[in-house]
């Protein structure tokens, strides 16, 4: 395992016995235990429907877990309510497969919405933010290579650009942890690395811990520092990118799956 030994590393997220049963009876997560350490780029693998998205959404309680406990930096997320819940959420940024921008708002407003967790002021209801926040937002837009686009409507941008706005929004949130749910799955393959590199930037330059679900094995090997695999809602494998070989691949995805050419 690369980096300092586990003993020295501080826990960013600790998940204990996490289960989720949806109202229709579907079992999405079945007693998952998982620890994510600070500074990690953890990739969650698994087939569609294996519970990856549910796992990420339980971490910031977009989905209520049925059973189990989640600690974020030692604080119990599952027990948090009201103000505490909101404060804890503001420390966890999220990037989505469908970008989830407010389409009719400007790019700038979308980035600024990342700061909503800390600005309960009346102005936010009129889309007004302080000059300091605006400056920050413009700076983040520049960092993701979208300078000059701040007044465009969000839906006027291409998919790759929209996802970069979402990354700027995550930067604006000044979170310690980033959840990325298939961040490049709806993008053109040619644009995937550009977006992934920005997420890598959040991890390396901003020191944010990243929990990311990915489909593309190629990307997994390139960006992950550690991997976790889910299958039918259970954790079935855990290890580093180096340990992830063909055999493991078949174990996770089933015998009929075919590893990508690069893996062989």
């Amino acid at each position: 395992m690369s980096g300092p030994s586990e003993m020295q590393r501080r826990e960013a997220v600790r998940i204990e016995g996490l289960s989720k049963v949806y109202d229709d009876g579907t079992l999405a997560l079945d007693g998952v235990d998982l620890t994510v350490y600070e500074g990690e780029f953890l990739v969650v693998l698994g087939l569609s429907g294996s519970g990856k998205s549910t796992l990420l959404r339980c971490v910031n309680r977009l989905i209520e877990p049925t059973e189990g406990r989640i600690l974020i930096h030692g604080e119990d997320m599952t027990a948090a309510t009201g103000r505490t819940l909101r404060r804890m959420r503001s420390d966890v940024a999220m990037i989505f497969q469908q970008f989830n921008l407010v389409r009719r708002h400007t790019v700038l407003t979308n980035v600024l919405s990342g700061s909503l967790g800390r600005s309960g002021r009346l102005g936010s209801y009129f889309l007004r933010f302080s000059e300091i926040e605006r400056k920050k937002a413009l700076e983040f837009l520049e960092r993701v290579g979208l300078e000059g686009r701040d007044q465009s409507r969000a839906d006027a941008l291409s998919g790759g650009q929209q996802q970069r706005v979402a990354i700027a929004r995550a930067l604006m949130q000044e979170a310690k942890l980033v959840l990325a749910d298939e961040p490049v799955a709806s993008l053109d393959p040619a644009l995937r690395h550009s977006v992934m590199r920005h997420i890598e930037g959040l991890n390396r330059d901003e020191g944010m811990t990243v929990m990311c679900t990915l489909h593309d094995i190629d990307l997994v090997r390139r960006y992950a520092t550690r991997l976790v695999a889910l299958r039918a809602g259970r954790k079935v494998w855990e290890g580093t990118a180096d340990e992830f070989d063909d055999e493991t691949f078949l174990e996770i995805y089933g015998q009929e799956a075919e590893p990508a050419a690069e893996v062989a």
Partner: peptide, 23 residues
Amino acid sequence: GPVEAITATGASTLQVLRYGVVP
């Protein structure tokens, strides 16, 4: 989607309505 995104920033319920729903 936008509702999830705004909720995830730690916004209050009214802010989620203002940003995630109203537009």
